[in-house]
Design a protein around this nucleic acid. Structure first.
Lengths: 326, 326
DNA sequence: CTGTTAGCGCATTCAT
DNA sequence: ATGAATGCGCTAACAG
């Protein structure tokens, strides 16, 4: 910076001003400095600035398995939004969602002095972890449940599940079975809630939910059993991979979809339109959730207080895996 | 830090040593310092350390669309490996893989003084971008082509494609058609190369490759056309989503897989085993690639010179979408 | 093994 | 509108 100042014939201070508050410097001086910056290829030292301002310009994201479609898309949304606000995003991925591992991930990020952290941890045990966070670090949760002590951005799972269920009911099905995710996942319980309330509202019988583990394999295994039950004419599966497994199991057992059984999934992964048959499913706008989470975090960093919940509405995408009950 | 030093009755320097080179401090002193650190909840200031050491402990990853299975998995592998070496990973995702956008991503990362950058950009235009990188920044490329001027970690695409092709040939098919990715993607051209050479080695006719865009939709569209040609009994598709589209198109047209047409994909996404029929495909170990890339980068940061290529062998996973020619 | 001195590159404060 | 002095928190180099 001294060099730049020298070349431009000003003091280091002026260079600093040009970079941080250009309007406080006379245009001609500014131009000279900028030219010098260009010529010398000067790059501000981030660590030094951070040392004196106390802010790093880096945000952290703690997440489990960023390989899954949901977390990956959310992360992508966060990163895109962060870029627009001139923030960089660092990631800490977790092996498990225990209170300890969450604390550890946050700690790792914090030791690099991130300005705030977004936690993607749609699991009950995460809520516990969120309660024991350092108070002096702005934190936002993505997909968190009700009792979470920090701002939350999430897709309205219950609403999406209700849409799916009502769609099936409107097709004349007596009731709707549910292949759910593991019970201690926030998303899973939200979807169960929405499904159940939609059935209740219509006075339908409420079957016991079948519990899968999100994988296509678990959908397949449950599907093999369901195929034997002629009562089952409509199934709402809690995500698209399970729907895929379900689809295959039913077909192998000689059931036709949607003629014999209608199926609705959840997520709308890019491939869902090319399942066989094309899958009716509930689309989650993860990018939007990521953007909302970032905004919430920026607010927090800016000193805005209070617990906020930003809910994003999911959307039912009707394709060919659902049909009128016969 | 002064406070810690005071409480432990030592100088600030000793505290610093305890944190960075514990073996250079007498155990009892060390214990006292550690206790003081605990009690005061002291956290080293990262920016200050970085300012004086010149290293930040942060690595950058530049990638396009971390939503796709390949990049997401690679990123995950990198992050996991980085954690073991006490590095944090920051990401810069790109909208497009032009020379400009790559330079911009690297620049964004560099302005936050990352110690090195890994570029996931399996696209030809990226090679151009890689040639114009700052010389003073350690860079490693994932999935890059031959002429790339930096160390590269990648799956051996040609080898995987050859395996897939030979598998089909060994099943008695006269030749193998290829549904490729866009020509300017490194992976796509590597797979074309491997497929072609395997056909040549057996003296088979080499059909013109059909060019898709990686999406299930493009697989579907090409599939509709291919279904009319009775000559086509074996297809090697350049990734799993295209295979999915292909599968559906063929079936809709009344062709059976694998009885009428055999299909091999590439990637082995988690759902591939639940396609209908379960997809024979080539598994890429992205985690391994990520780990290798990180190691390469660490070497570079450590001053190791030279262009290195670390190739990871893919593996053929035989399932039920391929069968003997009838 | 431990302490002292110095300075990393920048922004804040107070002058001019 | 610009400059000079000061210190952010830490570690490298040297001294003891």
């Amino acid at each position: 910076m001294e060099d730049v100042a020298g070349l431009a014939g000003v003091s280091a201070m002026t260079v600093s001003r040009v970079l941080n508050a250009p309007e406080k410097v006379r245009p001609e001086t500014r131009a000279r400095v900028l030219a010098a910056v260009q010529e010398l290829g000067y790059r501000p030292n981030f660590a030094a600035r951070s040392l004196v301002t106390g802010r790093s310009g880096v945000l952290g994201v703690v997440s489990m398995d960023t390989t899954l479609y949901g977390p990956a898309s959310t992360l992508y949304g966060i990163e895109r939004a962060a870029r627009q606000h001139d923030y960089l995003v660092s990631i800490a991925s977790l092996q498990a969602l225990t209170r300890r591992s969450i604390a550890e991930g946050v700690e790792r990020l914090r030791s690099q002095s991130v300005d705030g952290v977004i936690i993607i941890a749609p699991h009950e045990s995460a809520a516990e972890g969120l309660r024991h966070l350092p108070k002096d670090l702005p934190v936002v949760d993505v997909g968190g449940g009700e009792g979470v002590p920090v701002p939350v951005a999430a897709v309205d799972q219950a609403s999406g599940a209700a849409r799916a269920t009502r769609h099936l009911l409107s097709l004349g099905h007596r009731t709707v079975w549910h292949l759910s995710g593991p019970a201690n996942w926030i998303d899973a319980s939200g979807r169960i809630r929405g499904w159940r309330s939609a059935l209740e509202a219509e006075g339908c019988e409420i079957p016991e939910p079948l519990v899968g583990d999100w994988s296509a394999q678990s959908g397949y295994e449950h599907g093999r059993r369901m195929a034997h039950d002629p009562e089952i004419t409509a199934v709402f599966a809690a995500n698209d991979p399970m729907s895929l497994g379900l689809l295959r199991a039913l077909r192998e057992a000689g059931k036709r979809v949607p003629e014999d059984v209608s199926i609705v999934g959840f997520d709308d992964v890019p491939e869902a339109a090319y399942f066989w048959p094309p899958l009716t499913t509930v689309r989650q706008n993860f990018g939007e959730v990521g953007g909302q989470a970032l905004q919430l975090l920026l607010d927090r960093i800016g000193g805005v207080e209070g617990d906020v919940r930003r809910m994003v509405e999911p959307e039912l995408v009707v394709r060919e895996s659902t049909a009128q009950r016969r």
